[in-house]
Design a protein around this nucleic acid. Structure first.
Lengths: 252, 252
DNA sequence: CTGTTTCTTGCATGAATAGGCAAAACATGC
DNA sequence: GCATGTTTTGCCTATTCATGCAAGAAACAG
């Protein structure tokens, strides 16, 4: 195994998990811990990670975001959903991705060697994609809302209006077969509606607790959902309702 | 087998796998490792791959290195500059902050209890400010440039045109008393000019190595600089030139 | 404070590499 | 055909590089 390969794998795991352990890497790569430590030292010197006792953590300005999110809720489920959702992608597509921790997990799960054009109003998603060399990243600016982690407002809407996408990864929403997709904030709903209007298909990845819940602001009908990515344990009855309205169900 | 044939096969495998091993290629082509190494050397000289011990990898699309490399450099100096620069702020002001690692340090140094309105086209700056409860953050979207860590383009310019600020923290630039403020990229320079035009004063914080250097694209004259934050060890003669054109000098 | 884990440093070893050299393959002109 | 010059290739040698090991230092946990 090339030294450079190890470095790349370490960078990848840092981007995905926010941390690496020296011993774990050593056994994974089949080299001594000394070698791994040397790797970590070099990467640290290049500013690509921050050395800590036992391993290393991401050092980028985005480390905080990544880490704080890791400590959040239902991380494993979201990572599984993300991996399944990424399976829907085809190289060369253009995407809208809006906010939410699941969407951030999806952004991190996008392979580094896939060429895509991605427009997002989420800082977390943008940060996760910032170092993907093959991703043409378009940041949708506007007034930043800390509670959502996304930009909203007239500027955001204007930027969305100029773009089109094959798929729209719609996140942080309520989901109900009867009421469709709903959002918790008026301005956020406006942006979601604009993205939905300008994209060919909507993809929604949700954990079970979001299924069959509704928020005040209506974004789109359930029949607008092209792909629904859910946990294996999702209630079959609910899924059938969405399926009957045209959604393809994908299990993580 | 023709030399050119081997070169093409090497390029093919690099595109497919991202790496090649010298020994493996030698046995596959039925030539000595020396010949393969010569091939790799030539291709590396032509910039088509990056030579590493044991073989070669796909040439770095620059993005990974450029920004993160810089972030590792002169961290302490930049932190000191940032603390001094933050001293110029007054609660209630509105700011433009553009890209560069020094500006990211400044963003991190902004006290959490200070109320400000901040517009930025830098993902790093935006991420640093995302959790400041009293900062009204406006993200200036556009096409993201990995090498700069900022958004540029028509969308960015349009967003800047709608805003005004008391201070503009101008970063990642060349600085020369005669040529003024210069940028390394045409689109970047455009955004900086727009921000300069719409702000009442320009603040520049630079490490010594940026002083008395010039880049291709002109942003503003030296007389446009209101505040110049420099290291204590900055050469006095250079500082005098800026001072005579109206800049206030602040030592970190 | 004590023991354990992790980290750095120096060193030895083997693999990979660059440069020099000569033979072979190839092209070119007579 | 023959002679000449060029290019390619493989081999040899000195050097550089990556790695693991050992010893001492530092960080951590109890």
């Amino acid at each position: 195994m090339l030294t450079e390969e190890r470095h790349q794998l370490i960078r990848d795991q840092l981007a995905a998990d926010g941390k690496v352990l020296a011993g774990e890497l050593a056994s994974r790569f089949g080299v001594s811990e000394d070698t791994v430590r040397r790797d970590l030292r070099e990467l640290a010197k290049a500013g690509q990670l921050r050395r800590v006792y036992g391993g290393a953590v991401a050092s980028a300005p985005f480390a905080a975001a990544t880490l704080s999110q890791r400590s959040g809720h239902a991380v494993e489920e979201k990572t599984r959903l993300a991996k399944a959702a990424v399976g829907l992608l085809v190289a060369g597509q253009s995407l809208f991705i809006d906010g939410g921790t699941t969407n951030e997990a999806i952004a991190r799960a996008i392979p580094r060697d896939m060429e895509l054009t991605i427009a997002t109003n989420s800082l977390g998603v943008a940060s996760a994609l910032a170092d993907r060399p093959l991703v043409e990243l378009i940041v949708l600016g506007g007034r930043y809302v800390p509670e959502l982690g996304t930009c909203v407002g007239a500027d955001t809407l204007a930027a969305v209006a100029q773009l089109g996408a094959d798929l729209f990864f719609l996140g942080s929403c309520g989901l109900d077969a009867a009421r469709g997709v709903t959002a918790f904030d008026s301005a956020e709903a406006e942006v979601k509606r604009a993205m939905a209007k300008n994209s060919a298909g909507i993809v929604i990845a949700v954990t079970n607790d979001k299924l069959a819940t509704a928020a005040p602001y209506r974004v789109a009908g359930a029949d607008a959902i092209r792909h629904l990515v859910v946990e294996k344990t999702a209630p079959a009855a609910t899924l059938a309702d969405f399926q009957s309205q045209g959604a393809q169900i994908h299990f993580a």
